[in-house]
């Protein structure tokens, strides 16, 4: 294994940890709004780390571009959908959880 391989492995592992944390948040957090925080932000970082990990292994620049395009689209869709779900919940009168 070369240094690049170790870096890829480390980044993939870190990405997996973020996905795991996002799922933990989804299960532990009290209401739909807080769960959206966990899913959107943690999964975005998790995917970002995995994209970087794969990009440094990529064989061509087009592959790197494809990976970045995927990340960009997921980011756009993720942020928009989180907003739409939160908006829908708010309109249906779902009160945010308070301590």
């Amino acid at each position: 294994m070369t240094l690049i391989d170790y870096l890829t492995a480390a980044l993939l592992l870190a990405g997996a940890i973020f996905f795991f944390a996002g799922t933990v948040g989804l299960l532990r957090f009290p209401d739909v709004y807080t769960r959206l925080h966990a899913l959107t932000k943690a999964d975005n970082v998790g995917l970002g780390l995995m994209v970087v990990a794969l990009a440094i292994q990529a064989e061509s620049w087009t592959a790197v571009g494809k990976l970045l395009l995927i990340w960009l689209l997921v980011m756009l869709a993720g942020a928009s959908v989180a907003h739409l779900v939160a908006r829908g919940a708010l309109r249906r009168g779902v009160r945010p959880w308070k301590q």
Partner: peptide, 15 residues
């Protein structure tokens, strides 16, 4: 339609 959905659609459809 919510503005965010509308913008998302406008950006996504060409892609």
């Amino acid at each position: 339609a919510p503005l965010v959905l509308e913008t998302l659609t406008r950006l996504l459809v060409p892609v």
